[in-house]
Design a protein around this nucleic acid. Structure first.
Lengths: 382, 382
DNA sequence: GGGACCTCTGAATCCACCG
DNA sequence: TCGGTGGATTCAGAGGTCC
C-alpha cells in the first residue's frame, strides 16, 4: 500500500515497441510424439521453430502421509516419482534447464504457457522472468468442482494458475482478441476462467483406473490455443502426458509436437489423438459457454458494508429479532447460525430461506434482506 | 502432465506436526503509526511480537510511457517514482530484506499475507519460500469490476493474488474455519474471492484526486483478518499507505501497527482511523468450530444418566448393535472399546467419529448420539 | 421412463492433545 | 519427542441402482 521502503530506483525511460527482425523459421516435422526426456528432446530441435509452448511441469507437491475423507475413503493422491524433488533448489535447476531450451526453440514472436499451483508456480514465474520472458497475463483457472479441504484447515484450494509470456517486451505475439470476446458473450475475456475439472467420459482410464493422475480438461487447452495461435501453427508440449494438447491441437487444425518419457502415457496419448476428430461448431460453443450466474453470500454484504455487524434483522411478523455478527452469522440469545440455519431452528422447520425470512427496518418499514442482495448485484455486476 | 524430465529424487518420508516451543511474546505498544522506512522501523521491533502481517509491497509495474484510453483521456496509472525498480534483482534484494525482518518479528505461530500482481507476485512468492515461510494458500481476489484492457492486446487483468503463509510447516496457525464457512453461506470458503474494487465513498481523495494509487477495499482486509486472527491480536502492515489495515483492525477489535514513510499518506491514514468505529463485542463473536468448544466425554453422558448402562446403540443402517457399559465403553459380542474405536474396528476403517456413527432409537427413529451431547451441553452451560 | 438415493472421485503441502 | 487416542471433517458432478 505504501512507500515505506528503501532506495527509489531511477525512472525507467518510456519504451517503444520495436519490430523483431525475423529470420525464416526452419521447417520441422510436426504432429508426432518424441519419446524421452524433455530437455534432451528439445535440445535436438532447431532454434525458433515453435509457435506456442504449453507446459504442465511437475508441481512438486510435497505431500505427507495418507489423507482420509470424512466418510473414510482414502484420497488417491499424486505420489508418482516424477513429482518428487529433494529440495527447492533442485526444482529450480530443473525449471531453469527446461525453460532455457523452451526459449531457444520458440519463435521470436511465439508465446509460452505454464500451469502450476502454489507449490511451484511462484518459482516457475520467477524463473520465466529471469530467463528473459515477458509475462503477458497470469490466468486463474477457477475450478467449478475442486476437491474440498477435508480437515477444515485451510481455504479450499479451488484454482490453478497459468502464466502466459512472450519472448520479450517488444515481441509481436498473436492474441485473438475478438475470438475471445465472442466466446465470452461479447465481454472482454478476463484473467479468471471458470472451467470444470477433467472427469466423466473425458477422463482417460487404463484397467479401470485413471490413466494419468493430473489430466487437464480439453476445455482449458481449447481456450489457450484459440486465444494465441493461428490454424497451422506448431504447438509443443514438453510434458505431454496423455496428450490433451495434441488432441485439442488436432481438433483445432493446429500442428503439434509432444515430448513424453513414460511408455504408459505415450500409448494412451497415441490412441487418443488418432481418434480425435475436428470439432464442429456446435461442439465448440458447448465447450465455451459456461456462464456462471452471480451468487452472493450473506457474508459478502457484511464484508462490503451493505449491512453492519451489530445491525438487527427480524422476521416479517417481528416474532424474532437477531443480531448480525462479524462473520455473517446471526445471534438470538445463545442461538447462533447462518441466516438459513437460524431461521429454520427458530421456526422448528427443516429448512428456511433466510433471504426472504429475515428483514431489515428502514423508515419504519420492513424489507427482506434479499433487497440488499439485489442492490449489491446492481452495483457490482460485471 | 508428464514425466519427460531429469533425475527422480528419493521419496520423502511422511511428516508429523510438531508443536513449536513458545517463549512468552514481548509486550509492545500497538495502535500506532511508525513514520519511516519499513525495514528500518521493523528492525526496531523485538522478535516474535506480531500475530499477523499484511503487506502490500510496491508492484514494480514497469509501465512504459503513458497509457491512453481509446477516447483520449489519460489513464491515471501507477507512475509514482517509488514504483520503479531498475532491475529484477534490486527488487529481489528489497523483497528479501523486508521479508527477513517480517519473519523475525512475527510470532512462531503467526501468519503473513502478501498481495501482488503478476509483475511482482512470483518473485515475492519465491522469496517467501526461500526465507523459510510455508505457503498455506494462494488466494485470488477476483475483482467484480476491473478496469478493462483498453487496447485489446491481452486478457482483462481482473484479479490480484494474495499469498498466506506460516512460519513453517509445523506452525499452529489460527484459521477460523467455521467463521469462513458461515461467511460463505455454509460452504467452505474457497481460494477465489469475489469482491468489488475500492471506489465510490470508500475511495479516499485529496484535492479531488485519488489519495493513493492502489488503495485496497476494506472488504478484502476484513476477510483476511477475520480468517486468521483473534480479537486483540496485533496486526502489522509495513506498507501502510492510507491505512486500510488499521481502519479494519480497529473496527474488528484487533490491534494494529502501521509503517509508512510518505507524509501525505500518513495524514490521510490518521484521519481515517480516528473516524473508524469499533464494533461492539457481541457483533465480533464468530462461529466456533467444534474443536474450539468444550469437550464432553461419552462416559459423562452415562455417568449423568443421559444414557443408561445396558442401553443399545446402533449404526444408521442397523448393521451393528452395541451395548453401553458402565464405564462408557461399548460391547458387540467379544469386541469392546470406545465409541470411536469400536466403530472403526467394525467398519474396518482407520478411524471413526463415534458421535455420528452410533444412534439411539426413540419412537422407532434413529438419532445420532451426538444429539445427546448437544442436550447435555445446553443443560450444563457455564 | 423418471426421480430419489447412493457411491465414487478430483494436482492435497489437511488434527490436537496428553502422557 | 514419540506414540496413542479422542474425535472432527466434504463439494460438485457423474454414474449407477432401485422403486
Amino acid at each position: 500500500m505504501g512507500v515505506a521502503h528503501m532506495g527509489v530506483m531511477e525512472r525507467v525511460a518510456p519504451r517503444r515497441k520495436k519490430a523483431v527482425a525475423l529470420a525464416p523459421a526452419p521447417a520441422i516435422e510436426a504432429n508426432r510424439l518424441l519419446r524421452g526426456d524433455c530437455i534432451a528432446e528439445m535440445a535436438k530441435l532447431p532454434d525458433g521453430c515453435i509457435d506456442m509452448i504449453f507446459a504442465d511441469p511437475p508441481y512438486n507437491l510435497q505431500l505427507g502421509g495418507d489423507l482420509f475423507r470424512p466418510e473414510g475413503g482414502r484420497v488417491d493422491a499424486v505420489d508418482n516419482d516424477w513429482d518428487k524433488f529433494d529440495t527447492l533448489s533442485s526444482y529450480d535447476r530443473f525449471t531453469k534447464a527446461w525453460l532455457a531450451q523452451a526459449r531457444r526453440i520458440l519463435k521470436p514472436n511465439g508465446t509460452i504457457w505454464v500451469i502450476g499451483s502454489y507449490h511451484n508456480i511462484f518459482r516457475v514465474g520467477a524463473a520465466l522472468q529471469d530467463e528473459g520472458f515477458w509475462i503477458l497475463n497470469d490466468i486463474i483457472w477457477r475450478k467449478a468442482n475442486p476437491m474440498p479441504n477435508f480437515k477444515g484447515t485451510r481455504f479450499t484450494n479451488a484454482h490453478e494458475t497459468l502464466i502466459w509470456a512472450s519472448q520479450g517486451e517488444d515481441a509481436k505475439y498473436t492474441f485473438n482478441y475478438k475470438a475471445m470476446k465472442t466466446l465470452n458473450d461479447e465481454l472482454q475475456m478476463r484473467s479468471d476462467w471458470v472451467l470444470p475439472i477433467c472427469g466423466g467420459q473425458e477422463r482417460l482410464k487404463r484397467n479401470g483406473t485413471k490413466a494419468h493422475p493430473t489430466q487437464k480438461p480439453e476445455s482449458l487447452l481449447y481456450r489457450v490455443m484459440l486465444s494465441c495461435t493461428k490454424p497451422g501453427d506448431i504447438v509443443l508440449d514438453p510434458f505431454f502426458g496423455t496428450g490433451t494438447t495434441g488432441a485439442v491441437a488436432k481438433r483445432l487444425g493446429r500442428q503439434w509436437i509432444g515430448i513424453e518419457r513414460e511408455p504408459d502415457y505415450i500409448e494412451v496419448a497415441e490412441e487418443r489423438i488418432a481418434e480425435a476428430l475436428p470439432l464442429d461448431e456446435s461442439a465448440l460453443a458447448i465447450m465455451q459457454t459456461a456462464r456462471q450466474q452471480p451468487k452472493v453470500a450473506f457474508g459478502t454484504l457484511v464484508e462490503t458494508g451493505y449491512l453492519q455487524p451489530g445491525s438487527v434483522v427480524m422476521d416479517s411478523k417481528r416474532r424474532w429479532s437477531a443480531t448480525v455478527r462479524a462473520d455473517g452469522s446471526l445471534a438470538v440469545g445463545s442461538d447462533t447460525g447462518s441466516i438459513h440455519k437460524l431461521g429454520a431452528t427458530l421456526q422448528g422447520a427443516p429448512s428456511c430461506n433466510g433471504w426472504t425470512f429475515w428483514h431489515i427496518e428502514k423508515a419504519g418499514k420492513l424489507h427482506p434482506i434479499d433487497t440488499l442482495r439485489q442492490t449489491y448485484l446492481l452495483a457490482n455486476e460485471p
